[in-house]
Simulated scan of single mutants.
Amino acid sequence: MSTYDVEETGMSEQQALMDFPGAEALRAAGRVEAPSADALARAMAAVEGAARREVREGVVVAPLRKRRRLLSVIALAAVAAGVAVAGVNLRAGDQHGTARAQSASVFLNNVAEVAATQPAGSGRYWKTRTDSMGAYISRSMDVTYTSASGKPFRKSHFPGWRLGSRTYDWNGLDALTTDPDQLLRRIENTTKASADEDEDAATLGFVQASTLLANAPAGPRLRSGVFKALADLRGVSVVGTVKDSIGRSGTELSFHGGVGTTEVIIDPRTSKLLELIEPWRSEKDQRRATYLSTGLTDSIG
């Protein structure tokens, strides 16, 4: 708190800190029973989203009187969720990190249930269309690339989708285990395919799993299993509700690895992965893939 704030308000530092909308409700809450996992997930998602917006607006580094906006959001979310508080002690740290992890786990397990109910579909090709190009992969792993307008421009052989230390073709994905514990072990035991890969092994594992969810012909049970595996992966946290680069709404998750932070945006209503932003070489170098549409089809174009 600055000297200006003290002189301007005539309050002590502690009094000024707690002078924000929602403070009285927070004090009145006192000590309560621990919240449910769902309530905590909702509260933490709200707090993370509010904090993200405030940081973007420069409020967090502004004078104290502006930071009260963020504190009021945190206070109301805490009371709504029934978060146990003692007096006015609002400390961040291990408990905050644990809450974010619990929030991610709840969200991912819920999305896993959605994924399990999606139709499998049918078709000769697996189609992926991003903001830059399209790809049509056959069961023989031949791939036809198309321009943003849908015009074919190159044919090649697709090497497959990596998960852990192995690469899977279309038939291999059909035979891959759907057990979350086994999938988690594969993700955690990821190894680099070549020395040219710049991500650390942990980031590679998360990116591979996210890519499989985004643009691989994984059936509903496999996608559900991968979501459940990620729910138990350390380092995953919920950021909150955001817009992707083309304005679609989804829930953003982040993974904190050795290279930097990887971000994914998921539509919780459909379990579709909308966007993947991964660090490359460093936090400053990022690669983004925006998935416009994916699915099975019988024709190219």
Rank of each mutant, 00 (worst) to 15 (best):
Y4K: 07
D5P: 04
E7C: 06
E8Q: 12
G10W: 13
Q14H: 04
A16D: 12
L17E: 08
L17R: 11
P21K: 04
A25P: 04
R27G: 05
R27Y: 10
E33A: 15
A34N: 07
S36H: 00
A43M: 14
M44N: 02
A46E: 08
G49A: 07
R53F: 00
E54G: 09
V55Y: 07
G58P: 03
V61I: 09
R67M: 11
V73D: 13
A75C: 06
R91F: 02
A92G: 12
H96I: 06
A101W: 04
A104H: 10
N110H: 09
E113I: 10
A116Q: 13
T117C: 06
T117A: 15
T117I: 01
T117V: 08
G121M: 03
A135E: 00
Y136M: 06
Y136F: 13
I137D: 03
S138N: 05
V143G: 04
Y145L: 13
T146C: 05
S147V: 09
S147G: 13
G150M: 02
P159I: 06
R162S: 13
S165Y: 00
Y168A: 00
N171M: 08
G172D: 08
D174A: 06
P180M: 00
Q182D: 07
L183T: 12
E188S: 13
N189W: 07
T191M: 10
A195G: 12
E197R: 06
D198H: 07
E199F: 02
A201T: 15
V207H: 02
N215D: 14
P217F: 03
S224R: 04
G225N: 08
F227I: 04
L230E: 03
A231Q: 05
L233A: 03
L233E: 02
L233C: 01
G235T: 12
V239M: 13
V239Y: 10
T241A: 07
G247F: 09
S249D: 07
T251M: 05
S254I: 07
G260I: 10
T262N: 06
D267K: 04
D267H: 07
R269Q: 13
T270G: 08
S271A: 15
S271T: 06
L276E: 01
L276M: 10
R281W: 01
E283W: 05
K284S: 12
K284P: 01
R288T: 15
Y291N: 01
L292K: 13
S293W: 02
L296W: 14
